[in-house]
Design a protein around this nucleic acid. Sequence first.
DNA 1: CCCTGGCACTCTGCCGCCACGAGTGCCAAG
DNA 2: CTTGGCACTCGTGGCGGCAGAGTGCCAGGG
Lengths: 339, 339
Amino acid sequence: MLEERRLEVLRAIVEDFVLSNEPVGSKTLAERHALGVSPATVRNDMSALEEEGYITQPHTSAGRIPTDKGYRLFVDRLSGVKPLSRAERKAIQSFLEGAVDLDDVVRRSVRLLAQLTRQVAVVQYPSLSISSVRHIEIVTLNPNRLLLVLITDTGRVEQRVVDIPAPVDDGVVGELRGLLNGSLRGRRIADATEAAADLPDTVRPDLRPYLTTLTTVVLEALLERQEERVALAGTANLTRASVDFADSLRFILEALEEQVVLLKLIGSARETGTVTVRIGRETDVDALRSTSVVATGYGLGPAALGGMGVVGPMRMDYPGTMAAVRAVAKYVGELLGAD
Amino acid sequence: MLEERRLEVLRAIVEDFVLSNEPVGSKTLAERHALGVSPATVRNDMSALEEEGYITQPHTSAGRIPTDKGYRLFVDRLSGVKPLSRAERKAIQSFLEGAVDLDDVVRRSVRLLAQLTRQVAVVQYPSLSISSVRHIEIVTLNPNRLLLVLITDTGRVEQRVVDIPAPVDDGVVGELRGLLNGSLRGRRIADATEAAADLPDTVRPDLRPYLTTLTTVVLEALLERQEERVALAGTANLTRASVDFADSLRFILEALEEQVVLLKLIGSARETGTVTVRIGRETDVDALRSTSVVATGYGLGPAALGGMGVVGPMRMDYPGTMAAVRAVAKYVGELLGAD
DNA sequence: CCCTGGCACTCTGCCGCCACGAGTGCCAAG
DNA sequence: CTTGGCACTCGTGGCGGCAGAGTGCCAGGG
């Protein structure tokens, strides 16, 4: 009873603060939300909530604002996931449908997510390791140089220029192409690496040096760059909450330019099946200690193709943001799955 | 004589203001720069310069700051291009050398440029229209769907999924591949479009519908997306000059997220052989009226592959920035030319 | 035992005030 | 044409006081 009302008070504080960005006091709280008790009672509850570390006051005799811990409780127990409107769902679908290729899907998703949430959006390019090899193409640039193009079933294309030990003619190139495709096509990339490593041992001796060089490059392309790239959009939205950050804005922007940091933020959400929220210091990135990250994986059930999410002020509309992230991830997953 | 000293005064004002970001007064000016005249004389010159519109005062009885017109004169007549240090040249070279493919070159260039100039850097992906077709590959996804991959001699790869009117077998795909490559390989893309359009008329009737579909897609890929993409880095540097922008920061960031705007800014610099500077309103973008753009083309002499440049506060180190932009463009051009 | 109204207290933010200093413009003399 | 002097302007920063919002605590009532 008592416990319950306290939580209600916390919810009210979070919701009001998210809207107004101003410390919220007992009086306005009792007025605006039908709590059925007087400001004095609310004060007592707030005092208790502060004791327990869920809220704090920026300075004596100002209203209260939620702490990291307060937001955490709010997200875990007090908020559902606000469903999107029909119009929003429609918009997502039609916006993504126009995509012409994989890169375009990613770029569109990230812009879409930024617009929907009015925050900074991050989308990881689909990981190579989960998808499978669809085709390997070798193009002769000149007798000593080949261009290797690797196409996956998610439509991703990787390219590498390869210098080879001795000149080859087109016939040999054709053979090599056949061998590589024969042994790798249709394989998951995780498995393909093994097959590629064994390949040179099984063929005509004169082809071996070439094949060794080529498979090395293939492996390199598969392993080294997998999951490496992310797309970013909506940084302008950071200034929307500028009052909060102000001088930390620069460090936030710097952090967001580091691919490594972004991958850490959303890459890890990839494996969880649901939308995860990291609040303040939970992000484990110092520059982002005053922000929250809402992220999820997309595509192909439990072992996802990649992660996507948004970065915004701790003071954010969690239910709405979570809903948007979930919805976009779902549509993108379907889009890539159907491809 | 008199004219000459006035220009010297303007230069001194620009240089001081760029360093200090504070309106500069007659006294400090006469002290710091060996002008050989008294503050009173400088005042007269400043008064004249203000009359002519080169400088202005933010408020009565503060120092002067340069106007757009003042910066323009400074750039045109008063500043050379400060040469880079040996170490900087070395750094550029070694930083770019590690690139594994075309995308990587672009991404590395843009980061490099942002770091060197400590400003926002923009690099356009090499335009398709100047480069030539190296290879066209067709991969069967399923009987009704083909993946078309187009490779240019700059190493750029474009991909498109094509739905075809009726199922095809591998033999036909092979023929189509042969036809497309036969007629397009080695051609400049500008010419290739014509050749592609004529192609269907010259072949066996049963191949025509496929070829028509495919060439349509090829043309689309070539025309529609050429020059479309740009890479961006260093937005965090905008906050460095935050005092200047403050509330316009948001609009600047928003403008920088628009590919169209970026292309307008640096795409146009592509055709000029030298580094061009647009100051303030000269950018023709309202949100960027308090910024300057230093841009140039890169690659292949007069008809460049693309543009690159930086966006920063009007109050910027023009000689240094121009030198950095020019140097990076030169190296990138060499890198892509040698490929 | 919990809720409530009242009251004193403590901050912050804002406004007006004033003095200071930087910088200018003008003028008369060299 | 340059220079030094001088009066004037105006933004900045420190100070004090006032109002408002919000709290904590206490005593009384259900």
